[in-house]
């Protein structure tokens, strides 16, 4: 099997390192916190989250930002553990969009 998409040590073709640091947005702080709480409560293990990210499609993994990957893995684990479903999240997002209004 070729090297997997997350396993990048020594991979050729890596360029200069972007040293710009961005201020975390609220949703990123929230994603971080929810993820930690789920860990503290024993609902998910760090290695499960890692596995969920490792099983992501390579193109998706590479195209997402750090906390976007976390969000995808959090959703995978929560669905796996039958705590909530993708459809529930879709419905909730639609509800929010209606409430928040579109541009």
């Amino acid at each position: 099997m070729p090297r997997r998409h997350h396993d990048v040590g020594g991979e050729s073709g890596a360029g200069p390192i972007d040293q710009t640091e961005h201020q975390l947005s609220d949703w990123e702080i929230l994603a971080d916190a929810i993820n930690q709480v789920l860990g503290v409560k024993g609902i998910r293990r760090t290695d499960e989250s890692r596995r969920a990210r490792e099983d992501m499609d390579k193109e998706l993994y590479r195209s997402l930002s750090y906390y976007e990957r976390w969000t995808v893995s959090m959703e995978t684990i929560l669905a796996e553990k039958k705590i909530l479903t993708t459809e529930e999240i879709d419905r909730k997002v639609a509800e929010f969009e209606k409430k928040w209004g579109e541009p």
Binding site: S25, W27, L30, I34, L78, L84, I89, K92, V93, F96
Partner: peptide, 13 residues
């Protein structure tokens, strides 16, 4: 897209 999902996940949990 993902930010909205985080808020939705929080609400549901």
């Amino acid at each position: 897209y993902h930010a909205k999902r985080v808020y939705a996940i929080r609400e549901l949990l």
